[in-house]
Design a protein around this nucleic acid. Structure first.
Lengths: 111, 111
DNA sequence: ATAATTTGGCCTATATATAGATCGAAATGA
DNA sequence: TCATTTCGATCTATATATAGGCCAAATTAT
C-alpha cells in the first residue's frame, strides 16, 4: 500500500491483527523463539514482529508463510483442502464472464 | 518480501491464489469493473490485478481490504465475529509467557 | 459485424517494506 | 537474587511494491 497511507477498514485491520495474534500464540505454544521462528519462515526477526503485530504493510506471502510454519490454518483448510478448493474454484472461474460491461452509453442523447 | 526472492511454500502460495480467485469471483458476481472495484478498495487497477492473481508480494492490508469490499469472509467471520475472536484471543495472550527461553547453555563444559 | 468498453501488459517515478546490525530493557530459569 | 537470553526499538541501505499513464488485444452488447 505504498504511496500515501491508505485508510484501512476495521474489518481488514482486525483480520490482520487477529492473524498476527494467532501466529504469535502458535509460536509461543510451540516454544520457538522469534529468531528461530523467523529463520524457519524465511523472514527477518523485525518482519516477524511486524507480522505478529498485525502490520497491514507486510507482504501477503510473508504473513501466509508464517501462518503455514505456525500451523495456523488459512480458510479453515489444510494443504489438501486448499488445493481442492483451488481446483474446483478454478473450474468455476472458467464459466464467468471475462469482463464486466456497464450498460452502454450512447454517444449523444442521455436517458 | 523485498531483498532476494523468497521461496514460498505451496500452502502459502495456494492460499494467496485462492483468496485472489475468491475476490475476483465476488467482483464479477457483483458486476463491478476492475476500475470501479479498485476505486472502492482504495487501490490502483494494477494492484487489484496483482491481488486477484494471487501475487504474494501484495500488502496484506490491501488484499484484506479488497476481500472486505468483495464480501469475502476472512476466518469465516463477519465483522462482529472477528472483533469477538480478537477480544477473547487478546485475553488469552495475556496469560502466555512473554518470551520463550531455550534450555540454558553452560558457559564452559559441553555435555 | 461493429463500436464501446474493459482488461492485461508495459513503462517510470516515488514511497515503502525488508534485512541486518546494535542496544537497553525485560523476562525467564536456576 | 542473578546471570543469560529474548525481546522491542531504532537506524541505514537496498530492493521492491505501488500509482498512474498509455496502448493493444480481448470481450461484450447492440
Amino acid at each position: 500500500m505504498p504511496k500515501k497511507a491508505r485508510p484501512y477498514s476495521r474489518y481488514a485491520k482486525d483480520a490482520a491483527t487477529l492473524l498476527g495474534q494467532l501466529i504469535r500464540k502458535a509460536r509461543i505454544d510451540r516454544r520457538m523463539t522469534t529468531e528461530e521462528f523467523a529463520d524457519r519462515a524465511g523472514v527477518s526477526r523485525g518482519l516477524l514482529r511486524r507480522i505478529e503485530n498485525g502490520d497491514p504493510g507486510c507482504a501477503l506471502g510473508a504473513v501466509f508463510e508464517a501462518a503455514a510454519i505456525a500451523g495456523v490454518p488459512l480458510f479453515n483448510a489444510d494443504e489438501r483442502a486448499l488445493n481442492s478448493a483451488l481446483a474446483s474454484n478454478s473450474a468455476v472461474m472458467t464459466l464467468l464472464p471475462k469482463s464486466v460491461h456497464m450498460p452502454r452509453k450512447k454517444p449523444d442523447d442521455d436517458f
